[in-house]
Computed example of a mutant assay.
Amino acid sequence: MCNKLLKKIINDEKSGGIVLIFCTIVSLIIANSAFREGYLHFWNISLAGLSLELWINDGLMAIFFLMIGLELKREVFIGEFSRPRNAILPVAAALGGMVVPVAFFLLFNLGLPTQSGLGIPMATDIAFALGVLSLLGKRVPVSLKVFLMALAVVDDLGAILVIAIFYTKDLMLLYLSIALGIFAFLIVLNRLKVYSLIPYFIGGAIMWYFMLLSGVHATISGVLLAMVIPFAGRTDGRSPSFVVMHKLHLPVTFIILPVFALANTAVTISSDWHTLFAEPISLGILSGLLLGKPIGIALACLIVVLAKFSKLPVGVNWYNMVGVGLLGGIGFTMSIFITLLAFDDQQVIDTSKIVILTSSLLAGILGYACLHLTLKKSK
């Protein structure tokens, strides 16, 4: 069952990556056409007191974070992280792939107003990275796919922690206390082995509302909800956690992330767009994603393997690991998401989005080329 789910996820991500690319292109075309004003106004339409864009970024993305949390839980219970020796390598790779890109970013932005964007090059877009990897077909060892997925999940968890710690504004302790109180209540339900999903979803929705009011980004409630939904140690499709994760993959991959792309990649590209790449924020993002990611991932893996704490995945060589490191530079979804939290200046936001899209495209091309050459040689 677990292997079947893994194959389904990989297939979904391949198709989902194509849909994401399509939606991004459509959004960019409309944003640079005569329909620009109407398109931007659409995302600002008010619905129940919140703009449509806010409902997407704070509401729908909380569901995306719920799925990420459930994927991490699965890895801990029955996946790559269930055996400590196997978990060490992707966890170390993810940490290296977060710390080194931040160092590159700060090299150009330390002390500047843009240094608040240090979290932008940290995360890996699972959909795009697995999508590019799947283009290489059967030559890719399953162990390499599992490694990349585990790395990306930990990457996203790191980004989530950064969001919770560094991008919380105007903290309202009363509302945060209520949200955490609901979380504690859901923990009790978990301990009492309440397997019905209804109380968890109701509690999760209320927790999301008070988290939104608290100043802590509301999407964090998705991760907290994932922590309390019972896993029950079962893989036969009847575990509540397993069921929810299984049901979420299609809507998240083909609805939530594409809608997020449509709402957040509407960037007007000026005739002098190439000059943007000389700015500190641009150099920080470019170097972080294209250099920091592969260097951090490969270096962390090298240290762990040389120290004999772990070993490379079966059928994988060091050239392949460099290729995976390059794919780790595909930031896209999480990078754009953190950009929206890090800055208020619309010009800086638009510049960051353009650089993120460019960096992710280059990382995907370079990663594919590296793996295409090295996997062919390793046959």
Rank of each mutant, 00 (worst) to 15 (best):
E80S: 10
K376N: 14
V19T: 13
V216L: 10
P230D: 10
D236N: 12
L192S: 12
L225V: 02
H372E: 14
K376Q: 13
T219R: 01
G323N: 04
S27P: 06
Y39W: 11
M207N: 01
I256A: 06
L283P: 15
A300M: 01
K376T: 14
G69C: 03
L262K: 02
A159C: 05
A34S: 15
F343L: 09
K379Q: 15
M61Q: 04
V216P: 10
A266G: 11
P313L: 06
Y195C: 08
A103L: 15
V99H: 07
G69Y: 01
V153W: 00
M207V: 04
I10Y: 09
L189K: 02
K138H: 12
S287H: 12
I163M: 08
V132T: 07
F309S: 11
K377T: 09
S196D: 13
V355G: 10
L262E: 07
S177D: 14
C370I: 03
L341E: 06
S15W: 14
N264Y: 00
S116M: 13
V100T: 05
C301N: 06
P199Q: 06
F254A: 08
I78E: 13
L312C: 09
S378D: 15
I126K: 00
V76K: 07
P141K: 06
L70G: 04
E279H: 15
G119S: 13
L54H: 14
L118M: 14
D58Y: 01
V188T: 08
V228G: 05
S359I: 10
V154N: 03
L291C: 12
L340V: 06
L180M: 09
F337K: 00
P113S: 12
G79Y: 02
A62W: 05
T114N: 12
I187F: 14
V252P: 01
W318R: 12
I336Y: 02
A92K: 01
S310W: 02
I303L: 10
L95F: 08
M207D: 05
V153K: 00
L213H: 13
L89Q: 02
L161N: 03
I165N: 12
V91T: 08
A184F: 09
A92E: 03
F254L: 08
L283R: 11
L302V: 04
L289W: 07
G181P: 05
A34G: 15
G49T: 06
V162L: 02
K353Y: 11
L5F: 14
D345H: 06
D344R: 14
K7I: 06
V324N: 03
I56S: 11
V26P: 08
A123W: 01
A48W: 07
F210P: 10
G222M: 01
I202W: 07
Y167C: 08
Y319E: 15
D156W: 00
N86D: 15
L89H: 02
I356V: 14
F343D: 11
D350A: 14
G292N: 11
S239T: 04
M1D: 15
G97N: 04
R234G: 07
I63T: 05
S378T: 11
A159F: 00
A159M: 02
F64V: 01
V132C: 08
G119C: 09
V348M: 14
A232H: 06
L326Q: 06
S177T: 12
G16N: 04
V355Q: 11
I303P: 05
G237T: 05
